[in-house]
Nucleic acid binder design. Structure first.
Lengths: 207, 207
DNA sequence: TAGATTGTTAATCGATTAACAATC
DNA sequence: TAGATTGTTAATCGATTAACAATC
């Protein structure tokens, strides 16, 4: 089966499957099964087969999935069979960590530019070698380059205006590390990372 | 209604509600409604009322919710009406960012100790003032202190063994920044933060 | 062939929404 | 009182699971 609008919750699991496949491949494995993947990820094998069936047929009865083949297909489906330029806004500790993060390169992403508003940071270099630019130039630069993905790593009180600027400049995908709920047009997708939110989810289950 | 096993997906939204309430409070607001919260968060008002109804009655018909009252109740429900000590493992860029993160203090968390395995880091200080300790002492120390929450900020290939050590020492809640799916006993809860996974979720929707 | 595992269907389970009586 | 908004019920919608024919 193709088409028919794939549920967002299914899309959200594909990167997890992809990560598991890369892991197996690094372990020199060539074949896997929905059973093995499910055990590893804490997901039922039926769910994995159902999820994949939204996009095509990738396995062989009796055998399972050829890891490289499924990996390549998932990369295509997720559009990470290429490298995306990402704009980083905020060059604090977190921005530094993201700029030098090794995990982006082989998973489809490259931090293409970094911006901050602090005068003493502007024109200095990030660990990765990237020059920090003045956030005042953000919109013009993003628009000209045609970048579509932004990472917001600024304090909460600056996040909404940074988001607005990025969106004005044509960005339609945001990864937001600031601990606020951004208000955005429905044409823009936002993923939120807030460690305190995750920790509070965990403490619910602690006495 | 009380009891009856609250769905995990509901629990996961509570920290978001709490964050929105704190935001409104900082804006000197005293009363809000499920409608206003929903608009702000992109969630239906019915869902917010339903979610809250798992835990009690916190509003007034015709008026809405007293922000401070609901905030306090959510803090109790999530067990963040106290401050939790958190063990940080990994003192790279990300560990540094987490150690100096200002957002933990007033949301129920304190980084109580930091560990790393790199000889040149051990006994040096993190930005927050915390001394980096040898990961060889992790288990003994965590067990003695009785810490229950760990943050894993080490490379992927070290993450599973760090998780094992933490779990051995009594930790039952893990926030994992390493890009692998940890294998853990069912008594342990894991939250995963992997920026590449989030970005790949976003690129699905980009041409 | 015998054994294994897929892709898919139908059944089950669970979550969201709509609607409204209660009531501030 | 009139208007507003809660808490809750029932209906709808959607996602997960179980089961199995197909087939490698």
């Amino acid at each position: 089966m193709e088409d028919k609008q794939v549920p967002n919750i299914v899309v959200g699991r594909l990167p997890i499957y992809l990560r598991a496949l890369s892991f197996l491949k690094a372990d020199n494995r060539e074949i896997t099964s929905s059973q093995e993947l499910g055990d590893r990820l804490g997901i039922s094998s039926a769910q994995i087969r159902k999820d994949l069936s939204h996009f095509g047929e990738f396995g062989k009865q009796g055998t399972g999935y050829e890891i490289r083949f499924l990996e390549n297909n998932l990369k295509e489906i997720l559009h990470v069979d290429r490298v995306w330029d990402v704009v980083l806004v905020g060059a604090g500790d977190l921005g530094n960590a993201l700029a030098s993060y090794k995990g982006f390169a082989d998973r489809g992403f490259r931090v293409a530019a970094a911006f901050d508003s602090a005068p003493h940071k502007i024109n200095s270099q990030l660990p990765g070698g990237l020059m920090i630019q003045d956030v005042a130039n953000l919109e013009a630069q993003v628009q000209e380059a045609g970048w579509k993905i932004g990472i917001i790593a600024v304090p909460a009180d600056a996040a909404q205006s940074v988001a607005n600027a990025l969106i004005n400049a044509g960005v339609t995908a945001l990864l937001n590390y600031a601990p606020i709920s951004l208000i955005t047009p429905s044409t823009v997708r936002v993923e939120q990372i807030d460690p305190a939110v995750h920790l509070q989810h965990l403490t619910y289950y602690l006495g």
